[in-house]
C-alpha cells in the first residue's frame, strides 16, 4: 500500500497499562503505528479508549509499559523520558491533538487567525504578514472563508470550530495527530463533510493518526487499521474492513450489528 512510506514504525507501544486506583483504565496494550497510517480505537463508553489516547499523547502517565516515538532525527525516544520542554515542543510541532469539544482545543477569545498562528509564533515565527497568510491558507484548506479570519471562534458553528481546530493543529505540519471523537456532537451532514475533509488532509499530508471513536462508520471511512477495546483490553485488531466485515469476537459482532440500518 502506498501510504506506508517507511518500514520503521513511528510509534511503538508496549504493554501500556493504566490503573485508576484498583480499577483498570486500560491494560497491556501493545501496537505499532507506521508513518501515514490511520489507526482507529473503537469501543463503547468506559472501554478505556480515551485513557489509552491520553497515555499515548503524554497527557496521562501510564502505570506501566513503554511508548516510544521516532523523532524527526530518526531516533526512537521514550515519551515519558523526554524533558518537559522537549515534550511541549513535540506537542506543538510534530503532533496535533483534536479534541471532541473544540472549545478545549481552541482559544475561544482570540481570532481564528491567531488560533491558527499560535503554533507558528510559539516556534519563533515573528513576521505578522507571513503568519497571517499562512493562517489564511489553512483556513481555506479547512473550508473556512477568508473573511472570517478576524472573528472569534465563539461566533463559529460547531462544525466550523472543529475545522478551525484541525487547521490550528496541522499548521506546523505534524507527523502524528491524535483525535478524540472529532465528529462527536455534530449533526450527520456536518459529520460527513468533516470526514471528507479529514480524509483528504490525512492523505495529502501523509499523516499518521490515532483516532478514538465509538462510531464505526467514522472508523470505516478514515482508518486503515482498527483496534476494538472492551473493559480496558484490546480484544480484536486488524485491517478495518476485515474486522468490520468479518468480526471474530462476539463483542465486535455485537458492535457491528448495533449500527443502525436506515
Amino acid at each position: 500500500m502506498s501510504v506506508f512510506q517507511s518500514d520503521d514504525p513511528l510509534l511503538q507501544v508496549r504493554n501500556v497499562t493504566r490503573y485508576y486506583g484498583d480499577r483498570i483504565g486500560c491494560s497491556e496494550v501493545s501496537f505499532d503505528l507506521w508513518p501515514g497510517e490511520v489507526l482507529a480505537i473503537v469501543g463503547e463508553s468506559g472501554s478505556g479508549k480515551t485513557t489509552l489516547l491520553n497515555c499515548l499523547s503524554t497527557r496521562l502517565a501510564p502505570t506501566a509499559g513503554a511508548i516510544e516515538y521516532r523523532m524527526r532525527d530518526g531516533s526512537m525516544r521514550n515519551l515519558y523520558q523526554l524533558t518537559e520542554a522537549e515534550r511541549r515542543l513535540l506537542m506543538r510541532t510534530d503532533w496535533g491533538f483534536v479534541h471532541q469539544n473544540a472549545a478545549e482545543g481552541l482559544r475561544m477569545t482570540v481570532s481564528a487567525g491567531a488560533n491558527v498562528g499560535e503554533r507558528l509564533m510559539a516556534i519563533g515565527d515573528r513576521h505578522y504578514g507571513k503568519i497571517r497568510s499562512t493562517a489564511d491558507d489553512w483556513l481555506g484548506r479547512v473550508e473556512i472563508e477568508s473573511d472570517r479570519i478576524d472573528d472569534d471562534p465563539r461566533s463559529f458553528s460547531g462544525g466550523m470550530r472543529q475545522r478551525l481546530q484541525i487547521a490550528r493543529n496541522l499548521v506546523t505540519r505534524p507527523r502524528l495527530v491524535f483525535m478524540d471523537e472529532p465528529t462527536g456532537g455534530l449533526d450527520v451532514s456536518v459529520q460527513a463533510r468533516l470526514l471528507d475533509l479529514l480524509r483528504r488532509l490525512v492523505a495529502d499530508l501523509g499523516l499518521s493518526v490515532v483516532i478514538v471513536t465509538h462510531d464505526l462508520a467514522v472508523a470505516r471511512l478514515l482508518s486503515h487499521r482498527i483496534m476494538v477495546m472492551r473493559h480496558g483490553n484490546v480484544i480484536e485488531s486488524g485491517l478495518t474492513d476485515q474486522v468490520l466485515d468479518d468480526p471474530r469476537e462476539p463483542y465486535t459482532q455485537l458492535l457491528v450489528s448495533s449500527i443502525l440500518q436506515v
Binding site: G117, E118, M121, I149
Partner: peptide, 22 residues
C-alpha cells in the same frame, strides 16, 4: 509559571497579533 520556566512565550505574540488584526 511553567511557561516562564520553559520560555514558552508564543502566547504573548498571539496578543500582539490580535492587536494588529483588530
Amino acid at each position: 509559571r511553567k511557561m516562564h520556566a520553559l520560555e514558552d512565550y508564543g502566547l504573548m505574540h498571539v496578543k500582539l497579533y490580535e492587536d494588529i488584526a483588530k
